[in-house]
Amino acid sequence: MVDENTPENAPETEETAIIQAGPVSSWLTENGFDHDLLEPDHLGVELIKVAPEFLIPLSTALFAYGFNYLQCQGAYDLGPGKELVSFYHLIKVGDNSDRPEEVRVKVFLPRDNPHLPSVYWIWKAADWQERESYDMYGIVYDGHPDLKRILMPEDWIGWPLRKDYVSPDFYELQDAY
């Protein structure tokens, strides 16, 4: 008699679903880079989760592997009291330009002290994108050459795109002269 409640016979749920490693994850694993797999996005792009302390070694390896273009860096908030996420969409620009290889790297950060090394020194395109993520979410990109507000006034208090942000009733403009 087969027990339907054993792990072997349990129906696949979101928690028990096995995620197939893609080519980038397989290469990273073969070369000893610690990371976790996330389910591919809606376009089938491979998603890789990495701890903050491994972002620079992993990013350097991906650059050496051919991911020479940072198409987008951004951030988002998972909700009040939850983690902040910094993400990187990388592309291999080269001979196969009609369908370049893509990968997304995500780093989950605690909202009370969101520090992460800057990838500016690997991809210069991260400059203003990391500044925007800092300005809107308060993620500090350690080692960034000019990390300061880019959209909000320099004396603004708080991080406007965090889901627990409370807008002030007014903002007093300072006399510029």
Rank of each mutant, 00 (worst) to 15 (best):
W121M: 10
E154M: 02
Y165N: 08
E14Q: 11
L37F: 04
P40E: 01
W156V: 02
G32Q: 03
I56Y: 06
S118W: 08
L161P: 03
V107Q: 09
F108G: 10
D34R: 00
M152A: 03
V2T: 15
F67I: 04
T29S: 12
G32F: 00
P23S: 04
A21W: 06
D142P: 02
T29I: 00
I150F: 09
V50G: 02
H144N: 07
L43Q: 08
G94Y: 14
Y69S: 10
P57C: 00
R149H: 03
P168F: 08
M1F: 13
G138Y: 06
R111S: 13
S97T: 02
G138E: 09
G66D: 12
S133K: 10
T29P: 07
E132D: 14
L151G: 07
V50N: 02
Y137N: 09
W128L: 11
V107T: 14
K124S: 15
N31C: 01
F170C: 07
E53Y: 00
A51P: 04
H115T: 11
S167C: 11
I18C: 09
P114G: 03
N9K: 13
E83W: 01
P160Q: 09
M1L: 15
A51H: 05
P117K: 01
H35T: 01
P114Y: 03
K49N: 11
P11F: 10
R149C: 02
S25F: 07
P168L: 06
N113G: 05
N5M: 11
N96L: 00
F33T: 00
M136A: 13
I18V: 15
E30T: 03
D41S: 03
D34I: 10
W123M: 13
L84T: 02
R111V: 12
P117D: 05
Y171T: 15
E83D: 10
L147H: 04
D98S: 04
W123L: 13
T16R: 12
G66P: 14
R149A: 01
F33Y: 15
P114S: 03
L90W: 01
V93C: 10
T13E: 03
G79R: 00
D135N: 09
D95N: 02
E30S: 06
Y76N: 10
L109C: 06
E4P: 11
N31H: 14
V140L: 07
K92L: 01
Y134G: 07
D34K: 00
P160A: 08
S86T: 07
F54C: 00
A17K: 15
E172P: 06
L37V: 04
G22D: 05
L38D: 13
F63N: 13
H115W: 07
